[in-house]
Nucleic acid binder design. Structure first.
Lengths: 331, 331
DNA sequence: AACATTTTCGCAAACGTTTGCGGCAAAGTA
DNA sequence: TACTTTGCCGCAAACGTTTGCGAAAATGTT
């Protein structure tokens, strides 16, 4: 890009020094109001745009964050990204969004891109295959805060923001119980992810509290297609499943596909509840009841945490956002 | 970010000059193989990462593209973005994705962000409210190529890549005719957008070729909700609509919602066909037949065009990608 | 041996901006 | 009047990298 106006050009025209131009544009107290006004007017007239590369090189400080996700097509990430973008825009930051495809090798390559671009901080949802987060923790040594969100490392001490998984699990189970469901199929995500473990444990525990009168069968699905197959396999005349819990939007799409294929009536023949951001549940009639796991609040929280880290906060925090139940017509 | 290794540190350790280190890492022919090897080994040992800010400042050349879209939740953009990201990654470019919310004022602010970050080029899907594209064309004066895609300016001479709208419209109409649909409701997008005009004209013309035996009613919907209401209004016992064409995924979601609410059987009572990237049609059973308007090929094409512009090509091109019909079970 | 060419480096300037420090003039204080 | 403080600027260096040009040594040619 060929910039048209620089500090030097302004200083030449006004017969003042470059440093004065710089200070005037920054409202530095050492510069007189008269000089400030002249500088600002001319800068505006000349469409002066600061060169962020020069600024970042000089200040060793960039105004770019990276958001790294497995895939941008995951609906949960939309609201997260938009929330972070809103906040970032307020403070003059830009976002670089990098996809990893859930591949650890690409995550490493993405970290390299982050280092080369000297990003100020990284928000990352790791892939399910990511076991070693040392490369991420090393970014902290370079003073680049890393905030994990959604799929976060289970045991390592690191900055994390996530949905309150236990609560989300408990709410869903609670709703099913309140709707007198007796034979429940719970389809959860990747069993190795902490979000899955937490939600499953809370869900099962809540169901178990009701005693032997409630049957719960739990399965795991990593894709919509896997979830679809589980439904075909479990919903046989011998097994009177009366409700299905879907731990994610993706699982919900697979379940709903199977329900339609089996021509089951919702909620008459089968009840459905999901963890969702709301987009998919609203595609169906009656609308699917869901426990909202919106990324929006999470994005705001993650941004706050990032700001704290950039301001010098060095301690590790794991923050959570509560879920809320949104009633549709599927139970 | 606090970099650990710099050219200077390497040059200090090897007792050679900074410029030699730089040239060695770039395989400059003036540097001996012996020196190159020593430099590269030490650079790797020290985890040297070039500082892109310094490079961009010195070379007046950045390796960042901007993709500007109204909203990342639009499914069409996922494949477009992923395609551009794949190509960009191959050539060492990063992507900055900015949302405009379809607001022209935010588009202007985003262009400012692009200038401040000295982006190498911009891929932009403008919002429906954007009338004045002069601010975009001005980026060309700054040697920042702008490639319009999806929602593109109608009349201005500018670089555009889009789906072959006429062909997409014709294919959909052709499919409906081949399935002997006699009473068709066509729901199109914003009537002011060129993609809408082109698809509607081609669609209508194809239907009209069949003579008076085919009834076509066309409507416009800017949201899924508007599409839903149109279906409720048009599908009365007096109006024997036997097929609905949906010009986008968003319109399709509204139409399918209404179809479910009205408890219509697809395809027995009503046929459905849409322009789509495939995600939404696959959520239903039977799957919705669609004319694929995938952003993936478009992304590759857009990237090619961008490369040509960066290599010095100054003439204006409007490039198109053909659509393909994907049969589901909805007709 | 003298001159020309090639190889392989180093110096220094450039990019655009920020910022510490000092200089000078004006105003304030004893 | 002499000294101190304040206001308002400019100089110069810094950031990390690239690159033009020149210098010195080695090699080649007459």
């Amino acid at each position: 890009m060929k910039p048209k106006a620089t500090l030097k050009k302004i200083s030449d025209k006004l017969q003042i020094s470059i440093s004065t131009v710089s200070r005037a544009l920054k409202n530095h107290p050492d510069i007189s109001e008269h000089t400030k006004q002249k500088v600002k007017e001319l800068a505006e007239l000349m469409d002066y745009e600061p060169n962020n590369y020069a600024i970042s090189l000089r200040t060793n400080n960039s105004k770019v964050f990276c958001i790294m996700v497995p895939q941008i097509s995951n609906l949960f990430y939309h609201s997260f990204i938009s929330a972070v973008e809103e906040e970032a825009r307020l403070y003059g930051f830009s976002l670089m969004i990098l996809q990893s495809g859930g591949d650890p090798a690409i995550e490493i390559a993405n970290l390299k891109i982050c280092r080369q671009n000297r990003v100020a901080g990284i928000f990352v949802a790791i892939g399910t295959a990511t076991k070693d987060i040392q490369p991420f923790l090393k970014m902290d040594d370079l003073d680049v805060p890393v905030i994990f969100f959604d799929k976060v490392p289970s045991f390592q001490a690191c900055n994390k923001v996530c949905i309150a998984d236990e609560k989300a699990g408990t709410i869903a189970a609670d709703v099913l119980l309140r709707n007198n469901k007796k034979n429940i199929l719970g389809i959860f995500g990747d069993p190795e992810m902490s979000i899955t473990k937490k939600r499953l444990d809370a869900f099962s525990q809540k169901i178990a509290e009701k005693g032997k009168s409630i049957q719960l069968k739990t399965k795991h699905a990593l894709t919509a297609e896997a979830a679809r197959k589980i439904v075909h396999k479990c919903l046989t005349p011998l097994q009177k499943i009366d409700a299905i819990f879907c731990m994610s939007d993706e699982i919900l799409t697979g379940v709903m596909k199977a329900v339609q294929e089996l021509k089951l009536k919702v909620p008459e023949s089968i009840g459905i509840i999901a963890h969702s951001n709301g987009f998919i549940p609203n595609l169906y009639s009656p609308e699917i009841s869901y426990v909202e796991t919106s990324g929006h609040k999470l994005g705001k929280l993650a941004y706050n945490r990032m700001s704290a880290c950039l301001s010098g906060s060095t301690f590790i925090q794991e923050l959570t956002v509560e879920s809320v139940y949104i009633e549709g017509g599927s139970l």
